[in-house]
Amino acid sequence: MNQIVLALTTAIALATSASAHSKSEQTTPANEAVVATVDKIEIRFDDPMRVTAISLTGPDGDVEIARETGLDPVATFRAVPVAAISAGVYTVEWRGLSADGHPMQSSFGFTVAN
């Protein structure tokens, strides 16, 4: 009986800690969106996230972006392209540390139309 109680307690603790990870709630541009221009890259999280790395890749390779948000945990991360972005398909990849200290990473993509 004690083993069952211990197993249930452990399962509940693991489920609770897994759900505590910060999640990306919304991005700008939206994932899979087709846009005319891109003046900012934003990622909004449900809990503060410390974004430690971010990259933007397009049809001609890496695109230079400047972070407007530092390394402090934030609910909204923002970066801006250094130069105008030409037409094509783009991917944003990011890594960070969630509010509970777990490493997180994800990506999203969008298309800039002619």
Rank of each mutant, 00 (worst) to 15 (best):
E42Y: 00
D60K: 03
I4M: 15
A11M: 08
Q3P: 01
F77D: 00
S107P: 04
K23E: 02
A11K: 14
G58L: 01
G58W: 05
T76L: 07
M104Q: 06
A83W: 13
G109P: 06
A20G: 08
A79N: 06
P59G: 09
T76F: 02
L56N: 10
A15V: 13
A15C: 14
P48I: 02
T16W: 06
L56P: 02
I85S: 03
G61A: 06
S86A: 14
A7F: 09
D62T: 15
A13F: 05
E25A: 11
Q105T: 04
D39P: 07
G101H: 11
P81K: 07
V74N: 05
L56Q: 08
S55P: 01
V74F: 02
F77Q: 04
F77I: 00
T16Y: 11
P48N: 06
S17W: 14
G58C: 01
V82I: 11
T111C: 01
V82A: 12
S107H: 00
A75V: 05
P59C: 02
I65T: 02
S55V: 04
I43Q: 06
V82R: 10
T27N: 09
P48L: 04
A84P: 04
G70M: 04
E42N: 03
V35S: 08
T69H: 03
G109V: 08
D47G: 08
F45T: 04
E68V: 06
S22K: 03
L14R: 12
A13M: 05
D100H: 06
S19C: 07
S86V: 12
A99C: 09
V89Q: 15
V51Q: 00
T69P: 00
V38T: 07
R95G: 12
I4P: 14
G101C: 11
N31Q: 07
Q26Y: 06
V74W: 02
I4V: 14
P59T: 01
E25M: 12
I12Y: 12
A84D: 13
A18C: 10
V89D: 15
V63H: 08
M49Q: 03
F110E: 08
S24F: 04
V5Q: 13
V34Q: 09
A84Y: 11
A66P: 07
